[in-house]
Amino acid sequence: MSVLSTGRHQSVSLRFALYALMLLLALVFVFPFLFMLTASFRTNEQIFAHSGSIGAFVPTGELTTANYAYVLGNGNILHFFLNSVIITTLTVGLGLIVNSLAAFSLARLQWRGREAVASLLVVLLVIPFEAISVPLMLLVAHLPGLGFEAGRLVLTRSWLNTLYVQILPFVANAFSIYLFYQFFRSIPKDFDEAAYIDGATPLQVYRHVIVPSSKPVFATVSILQGLAMWNQYLWPVITVPGESARPLMVGMQQFFGHTTEWGNVMAYATIITVPVLAAFVIFQRWFVRSVIGSGVKG
């Protein structure tokens, strides 16, 4: 509980002021979303007609679902949607295992060089992806991969145009490891020492001691990595020229390319955003509690 807290001591007027403030802020935070949603049901003319009033954020006047019909009817949005779901879930799923294991090793096991690795991690956090995207492209263009040719599984000369080129490079993530590492370090050592005395192996300690008491940080990492993957744009544009492995964000670019029907763009943007928002609203109690419980306290 905080400074603004504890019902007993709060005066009615303070309480009222806080409510007013919260609602006002809620408006500030939700209005671009409302704008997007409302505009997605309007023609350009309607969007401009309403831009000056509260009507920009409230679905009034002439509304149309034509934008959605157009977006869903042109291009393979459902296919792209499925691609994005696969890319996001696989990256997050693999990432949770790989990164938490690494953090476990760094935080809970004794080995030479682990401190050096831990401080290297902090440095790696600073490398912006944009800075390495071209060299990484040069690299994956030459990595042998697997693909289909004429119905047979064959070894291909590169990773281009695949779903896994959008997944594998992002599984190991310095920031995720850093978050896990911070959290694991805060778990009392007595827990695993007791388990070791009972004859547990390190991996058993990881599975039965560390993971069960770290659900919050798993949730945090899932949210962060999931959002990053869902919204990824630059990388797939470079490495996935074909349509078959194209993700949703790149699909949307197709609409910016040759339309200024804001309604279409907003409809596409809404289709991208709503699933994530829905997932958050459904799981939000769990999310929030998890993040609150997680060790991202520094």
Binding site: N83, G145, G147, F148, V154, T156, A245
Partner: peptide, 22 residues
């Protein structure tokens, strides 16, 4: 493990190459 994953993914989703074929 990685190759296994890659293979699995390739089986499911990979695109046929762009090479010419009869």
């Amino acid at each position: 493990k990685r190759c296994g994953i890659a293979a699995g993914l390739a089986l499911l989703f990979a695109l046929g190459g762009c090479s010419d074929q009869r």
